[in-house]
Design a protein around this nucleic acid. Structure first.
Lengths: 150, 150
DNA sequence: TTGCGTGCAAAGGTTTTGCATGGCA
DNA sequence: TGCCATGCAAAACCTTTGCACGCAA
């Protein structure tokens, strides 16, 4: 709501840099921390949490809680494109995050709203499944197995 | 995969009973533990975690990690009806879990598969949003506020 | 100078693990 | 009897909080 993003600090820039550089994947606080340590610019864990919290409030970053994982995942939201309108697909095999921009899905939203009275929040909703590449890889593996069994 | 569900113990029955009696909601380990304490048949936390882990492996129970919440949620999966075919809506206001059985959604699955090459797993996917009742309650609140401001 | 941001350490909560004991088959 | 399941306590994690100090505005 407030236009101010607080003070501009070195730590904030480092985190935001990392987030924008990895906007296509969900990252954890640990991953960020390790990266910064590797870069020779370590930041306290508490600071990372606090900065991310602010970024989430400002709508710059989104917070997810991915199944399996015990810790929270964060993802940068592109301001112009704005990931506000579309859903995300998350591959459970390779962890890839796919942005699904598709009229069919928007229709689904409208349908569930009018027929079931439920307002879906695309910001929080993630479809889990298996992506094309991983499905193909799996099929290959099965075929190989079959061949070996013959 | 394995047909055996391990030994049949009193604790396992108690947990399974609770899960089947609350199949329409997501429950946490804490909720289960508190209930069992209240029933005069307390079970160690570790046992609850271990039993639920097994039930998840057997496909009897599903594990969720709901946004906001810091802890995992579990839900019983009905063997006959099998929640395998439909999706779930979860209201972020009241926590209600809605089973969405709807052709439109099945079509979405087919569409995403054929057009985007992605196989959605309904077992893991939960739509987050706001249900009819909570949306109405919120609208009421806003109207009241507006009146008071006049 | 003012007050927010940072870092460290400690606290809080959830989940896992080790080990001795108890119960199912 | 053999082995798995349980319970307790301790450990391992992730995340939040308190407090003194540093830095942006």
């Amino acid at each position: 709501m407030s236009g101010s993003g607080g003070y501009k600090t070195k730590q904030r820039d480092l985190i935001l840099n990392y987030m924008t550089a990895h906007k296509d994947s969900h990252v954890t606080v640990n991953v960020i921390s390790d990266h910064l340590i590797g870069s020779g610019t370590p930041i306290g864990t508490a600071t990372i949490y606090r900065q991310l919290e602010k970024l989430v409030e400002q709508g710059v970053v989104r917070k997810y809680t991915v199944d399996n994982s015990t810790c929270a995942c964060f993802q940068y939201v592109e301001p112009e494109r704005g990931c506000h309108e579309h859903f995300h697909l998350k591959c459970e095999k390779c962890g890839k995050l796919i942005h699904l921009e598709c009229d069919f899905v928007s229709e689904l939203q409208v349908h569930v709203q009018s027929e079931h009275g439920f307002t879906i929040d695309p910001l929080r909703t993630v479809f889990y499944g298996v992506c094309k590449e991983c499905a193909a890889a799996e099929a290959d593996k099965k075929n190989e197995k079959r061949k070996n069994n013959e």
